[in-house]
Design a binder for these strands. Structure first.
Length: 176
DNA sequence: TGAGTGATCGTA
DNA sequence: ACGATCACTCAC
């Protein structure tokens, strides 16, 4: 059996542009620790939200209390509630003051961003959590880079034709 | 196909 | 202060 080197992903990795980071996160291993348990899943689906000019991005209205995490340097989490029911988990990307984030839409056999957070127990308290220094959540790279396909982003009809049609959703092909 | 649910933000 | 909006899911 091939033994791979599991490398924890650090700050620098996350400051690249969201259009590089979002597809690159496919295949990375998300690790979540509680007092007694540790679970891990591979990331299988992501979506990119890119700056104030992106009319699908929350930051299109500028920096507010809600969008504040996106203006941090890449590597922290941006967590928010949608439809009154579902927590969404995003990994902030890019340099400081450039609001970009990657929505985690799927892990292994978990499809849908609401199910992802429900399964992992991700709630508002994970907002601003730093993936490089956190003891309870971080990412590992074991070198696997799945091939993937692209598609338009979901649930952003309000963003207008241009932004709606961009294929900024990345779906990993099943791992052999 | 539409009900459920509540934080957020624009308009006052 | 109120009301519209919303990176969703599940049951019909």
């Amino acid at each position: 059996m091939l033994v791979r080197n599991h490398q924890k992903l650090k700050d620098d990795y996350f400051t690249s542009d969201v259009l590089e980071l979002a597809p690159d996160l496919l295949g990375k291993i998300l690790v979540l620790k509680t007092d007694k348990t540790m679970v891990s899943f591979r990331i299988t689906e992501t979506e990119a939200y890119r700056g104030e000019e992106d009319l699908a991005c929350h930051a299109r209205k500028g920096r507010t209390k809600r969008t504040d995490p996106m203006y941090y340097p890449g590597g922290i989490l941006y967590i928010y509630l949608i439809y009154g029911m579902y927590w969404m988990m995003n990994i902030v990307a890019g340099e400081k003051n450039i609001p970009q984030a990657v929505l985690i839409r799927g892990l292994d056999d978990i499809r849908g961003p609401g199910k992802v957070t429900k399964t992992l127990g991700i709630v508002k308290s994970f907002n601003y959590e730093n993936l490089s220094t956190s003891k309870r959540i971080y990412l590992l790279d074991d070198g696997l880079q799945p091939t993937y396909s692209c598609a338009p982003r979901v649930g952003i009809d309000y963003a207008g034709e241009h932004w709606k049609n961009l294929e900024w959703r990345f779906i990993a092909n099943p791992i052999q």
